[in-house]
Computed example of a mutant assay.
Amino acid sequence: MMAHTNNLTLLPNQGWDERILICRNDELVQVFIVVTDRYVVLVDTLINPATAQKLVEYAQPHLAAGRTLLVINTHADYDHAWGNQRFVGQDAAHPAPIVASLRCAARFAQPDAMATLRAMQEAEPGIFGEVRLTPPTVLFDEQLTIDGGDLTLQLFATPGHTPDHISIYIPEIATLLAGDAAELPYPAARTAEELPLMRASLHALVAFEAKTVLYCHAPTAAGPQLLRDNIAYFDALEQACRAALAHGMPSAELVDDADLIARVGCPYADVTPHTDAWRDVHAFYRTAGHAAQLRMMLAWLADSF
C-alpha cells in the first residue's frame, strides 16, 4: 500500500480554461474546481477532511459575487469521496449539496466500504483516522445538468471502472472531465462484467470530440488522445485473447501473471504507445495490472468459445 499525505498543490494553468482549477494530492490523484457565474463546484473531495479543507481554501477566493458552493462525487472510491464530511452533517465546516449517482450513494452503504475504511485507518491513522463515510445528498440516475450561468455542467454515467462512475462535459468550452473513466496507462475493470461497460464509456467520451480532456490519473497534457489510446489498448487485448482462446489457451487462473502474459502473447509494451509517459508508469501497470485486465478479457470472451 502506498503512503498517503495531506499535501495538496494547485497546478499552474497549462492552457485549459481559466475557470477550471486543478489540485493534485501528490502523485495519487487530481481533482477539479470549476468556477461558474452561479457556483463554485468542487469535483471530488479527496482522501480525508484535511485534504478537503485545503481544496476549499483554494476555492475560497472565488466564493464571491453571490456564488454558491457545490460538490460533486465522480464515484465513491476513497481518493475521491472521503472528504465528504466537510460538507454534510451537523458539524460540516462548509455545508453544501453533494451531487452524485444513485449507485455512488449505494456504495457507501455496502459492508466492504466500512471494511476498507477500517483497514486504512489501522494502516495510516494519521491520514484516515478522522474519516467518516458520508454519502452524497443529491442523487441522479443516468444524467443531470447543472446550469452555472456561463458554464453548463453535463453529468452523465460512465460505468466500468466502478459501477457508480460519472463524468462531466462542459459544452461552452468543449471540456471533458473524464474522472477515472480513462487513465494513464489504462482504466482498470474490476470484474469481467464491468469490462464491456468501461469500453462503452470510453467510446461515449470520445463521441463528445472535446478539445480539452482532463483526468484524475493522467498528466494534464494527455489530452483527447488518451481516450483513443485507452480504447486501442483494450482492442489489442481483445484481439490477442481471442487468438489465444482459439488456440486452446488454458484457464487463466492456472498460470501466474508473467506466464499468462507470455501465453497470450500480449506484453504491455506491445499494446501501448512507445513514449516515455507510457513506459515510465509504475511496474504494477506493466505486470500485475496488465495481467489482471487480460484475465478479465479472457473471462468475458470465454462464453463465445
Rank of each mutant, 00 (worst) to 15 (best):
P159Q: 09
R228W: 11
H203S: 12
E253T: 01
D26N: 09
R295L: 00
E124N: 05
Q14G: 15
Y58E: 10
E57V: 08
C23E: 10
P136D: 06
M120H: 05
F108L: 05
V31A: 07
M296Q: 14
I72W: 00
G83A: 04
T134P: 11
L227F: 10
P219C: 05
D79R: 03
V41N: 02
L144M: 12
M114T: 15
T145Q: 14
G129P: 08
D235C: 05
Q239E: 13
T5K: 14
G248M: 06
M1Y: 01
L139H: 03
A181Y: 03
N230Y: 06
P136L: 01
P224D: 12
G289I: 02
L8T: 09
R190F: 07
L294F: 09
D270F: 11
A188W: 04
V31K: 08
A218P: 05
D77V: 13
G66M: 11
L11S: 13
L197W: 07
L10I: 09
R286S: 03
A204H: 10
L298I: 13
L155G: 09
S101L: 01
R86N: 13
A277D: 15
D276G: 08
H62V: 11
E142V: 08
T51S: 06
L294A: 07
V131W: 08
V40E: 06
T36Y: 06
G179E: 08
D235H: 07
H282F: 05
D91C: 07
V138I: 07
Y233V: 06
R118W: 04
A189K: 00
L55T: 14
Y169C: 03
A252K: 00
A252W: 08
V31I: 12
G83Q: 03
V213K: 09
W278C: 06
Q293H: 09
G160S: 10
M120Q: 05
L227V: 13
L144P: 01
N13S: 14
G66N: 10
P111I: 02
M297L: 06
V31N: 14
P196V: 07
G265W: 03
A113P: 02
N84Y: 04
P185H: 04
L21R: 15
P159R: 08
A64S: 15
V41M: 01
N7E: 14
I166F: 00
T137C: 02
L184N: 14
Q225W: 12
D235Q: 10
L144H: 11
G66F: 09
Q30C: 10
H80L: 11
A240W: 05
M2G: 01
T220N: 12
Y39R: 10
L70C: 12
I261D: 02
A200H: 06
V206Q: 07
T134Q: 09
A96W: 04
Q14S: 14
C266L: 00
D256R: 03
I127R: 07
L301W: 07
G265M: 06
